[in-house]
């Protein structure tokens, strides 16, 4: 077997390697910055995934997190700094506006057990794998 075949085979087995590709396609590459907002990091555990995103300054109560099957959607907004009359902006680099982001998680999520925390402007969402979706170990009986 060629090494490239091995690599391909190995990749094929891991649903996470397809993760990036899938999410790229979902987000669409048409956006001018090439990437969707907010930027996310995804961590994988045994039967958990953790999604983190840096969205400083938003009100956690106004952040909408929803899950449908394998799709996780984040919705929120941040308003621009208000300027009174006579104020001058020397710099305006911070983002503001509405955002929606959908991520495809490579397993069915147990929506009732999702935990989300917002610490120091960073959002952490723990997504447990649905019981029905967990791989089952099949024991082989010897005759």
């Amino acid at each position: 077997m060629l090494l490239s075949d091995l690599v391909r085979f190995g990749r094929y087995l891991d649903p996470w390697s397809e993760f990036e590709k899938m999410n790229r396609t979902l987000s669409g590459l048409s956006s001018p910055s090439g990437r969707e907002f907010p930027a996310v990091n995804v961590w994988k555990g045994e039967d958990h995934a953790v999604v983190t995103a840096e969205i400083p300054g938003i009100n956690p109560q106004e952040l909408d997190i929803s899950v449908a099957g394998k799709a996780l959607t984040l919705r929120g907004a941040r308003s621009p700094e208000k300027a009174a009359e006579g104020d001058t902006f020397h710099r305006r680099e911070r983002w503001y506006g509405k955002f929606t982001r959908t991520l495809d998680i490579p397993f069915d999520v147990d929506a009732d057990k999702i935990e989300a925390r917002f610490i120091k402007g960073v959002l952490y969402i723990a997504l447990p794998r649905a019981e029905a979706d967990k791989p089952r170990k099949i024991s082989i009986k010897s005759e």
Partner: peptide
């Protein structure tokens, strides 16, 4: 996150 590995990183 403990016992988790980073699988996808944008930032």
């Amino acid at each position: 996150p403990e016992k988790h590995g980073l699988v996808f990183s944008e930032y």
